[in-house]
């Protein structure tokens, strides 16, 4: 990476985690860990609880049992705004930008916790990483294409130089070429620069290509985990996720 966009990563850990809505668990007894410099992916069929898991890590969904820690600090059921102050950046699958605000204003809101004098230079740093956004600073975020919008969503999160990046299906609705570029160039790039990256991804093959470790969710629980090369040898995994019907 040409600019320092993230701080050195820290360990993200969830142990015995159950979380859900109105007291009903969607995910149960989940234990996962993500190390600095690693991309850790979570794959699984629709409805397996992947997004709920990520939301519970950042305080959007209530944790019913278990613990979440960042760099050893307990963040279980902390408010999302507090989690943001601890260097955890979260990009949701949908509603990932502020549509009525301009691209520049989206980035400025991403840097809301920065000192006022630091915001402009930080915007410049993020734009150096996503140069395509420079040409559309005044454009409303709601008018961007899918790929541009996702770049902005990531740029917004990078405004706070996160140590941990949590990405929920960043390639959803993107063209295959754009999706591959996003994963291999940007997401892998964040980890290579030292950040901790946890990503939920429907494109299992593409996710495995950039991951150091993968968790497989089914029915709200971790049913398999391991390094991608190991999982690729597992016939159950191959049949379920890497078969002919699986997206690239």
């Amino acid at each position: 990476m040409s600019v320092e966009l993230s701080r050195p990563g820290v360990v993200l850990n969830a142990s015995g985690l159950s979380a859900g809505y109105e007291g009903r668990a969607i995910v149960s007894d989940i234990t996962i860990e993500a190390q600095p410099g690693h991309v850790v992916s979570v794959v699984g069929p629709n409805g397996s609880g992947k997004s709920t898991l990520l939301k519970s890590l950042v305080g959007v969904v209530r944790v019913l049992e278990g613990h979440v820690t960042v760099d050893g600090k307990e963040i279980t059921n902390q408010t999302p705004e507090h989690v943001a102050t601890l260097g955890v950046g979260y990009v949701p699958q949908i509603d990932d930008v502020f549509p009525p605000l301009s691209v520049k204003e989206n980035l400025e809101i991403g840097g809301y916790l920065l000192k006022r004098g630091d915001v402009a230079s930080r915007v410049e740093a993020v734009l150096a990483f996503f140069p395509k956004l420079s040409a559309m600073l005044a454009r409303r975020a709601g008018k961007l294409s899918g790929g541009e919008r996702k770049m902005l969503a990531m740029g917004r999160v990078l405004m706070l130089s996160p140590s941990v990046l949590i990405l929920d299906e960043p390639t959803a609705n993107l063209a295959p070429l754009v999706a591959t570029q996003l994963l291999e160039e940007y997401v892998r790039g964040f980890a290579d620069a030292g950040a901790t990256v946890l990503i939920v991804e429907q494109r299992a093959k593409a996710a495995l290509r950039i991951s150091d470790w993968t968790y497989v969710l089914g029915g709200g629980r971790v049913v398999l985990s391991g390094p991608p090369k190991e999982l690729e040898q597992n016939p159950v995994f191959v049949d379920s996720f890497l078969g002919g019907g699986t997206r690239r």
Binding site: E81, Y90, D95, V97, F98, L101, E105, Y112
Partner: peptide, 20 residues
């Protein structure tokens, strides 16, 4: 800007550190 962000997407504003 925080007011407009909160109006547009309160959950995302919170994730950005805005005390909505």
């Amino acid at each position: 800007k925080a007011m407009r962000a909160t109006a547009a997407n309160r959950s995302l504003a919170r994730n950005s550190g805005v005390k909505t």
